[in-house]
């Protein structure tokens, strides 16, 4: 009987010990991809765009800043986001394809969206390297490296 009571108690204790507490600030998922720019000419290490347009949304805020990197917002309801970068003399375009998946990161945290399988179906820069095909702020801080 004592063994039985011990076994019952053991089960409850085991269940309770499995309830881990999660720090929600460590949520590694964001709703944007990250691109950095690299100037091939070497004359200037920073670049200023006149505007950056996301098709279906419009002009992105902060687009007139001098940039070494840029956040690329990814709409959940679509599977492709097309960006147009205007300078005083050129137009560059970048079409990013992706998959998205909602998930509950942890019971106590907010639900979030995971973006993965990032790829480029079109781009008009000199070259582009995909560094990480998933938006994961811990493992993949930069998704695209763009050469101008």
């Amino acid at each position: 009987m004592r063994f039985w009571l011990f076994f019952l108690s053991f089960g409850f204790c085991l269940f309770e010990s499995c309830n881990e507490v999660e720090d929600c600030t460590l949520d590694p998922y964001g709703n944007y991809a990250v691109a950095t720019f690299d100037i091939l000419s070497g004359e200037s290490k920073i670049i200023a765009f006149d505007s950056i347009i996301l098709e279906g949304f419009g002009r992105l805020p902060g687009d007139r800043d001098t940039l070494i990197g840029m956040l690329l917002p990814l709409p959940v309801e679509k599977t492709e986001a097309v960006f147009h970068y205007y300078t005083d003399s050129s137009l560059y375009s970048l079409a990013v394809g992706y998959k998205s998946q909602p998930l509950i990161y942890d019971l106590s945290c907010e639900a979030t969206i995971r973006f993965y399988d990032l790829d480029t179906s079109y781009q008009s820069f000199d070259s582009l390297v995909i560094l990480g095909s998933e938006v994961h702020l811990d493992y993949v801080p930069i998704n695209f490296e763009i050469y101008l």
Binding site: N31, F57, L60, P61, P73, V76, P102, A111, I113
Partner: peptide
């Protein structure tokens, strides 16, 4: 699963 997401670009979205 229903939730709302605060997005700095697209505003508050109900998903």
């Amino acid at each position: 699963l229903n939730f709302t997401e605060e997005n700095p670009w697209f505003g508050t979205q109900t998903l």
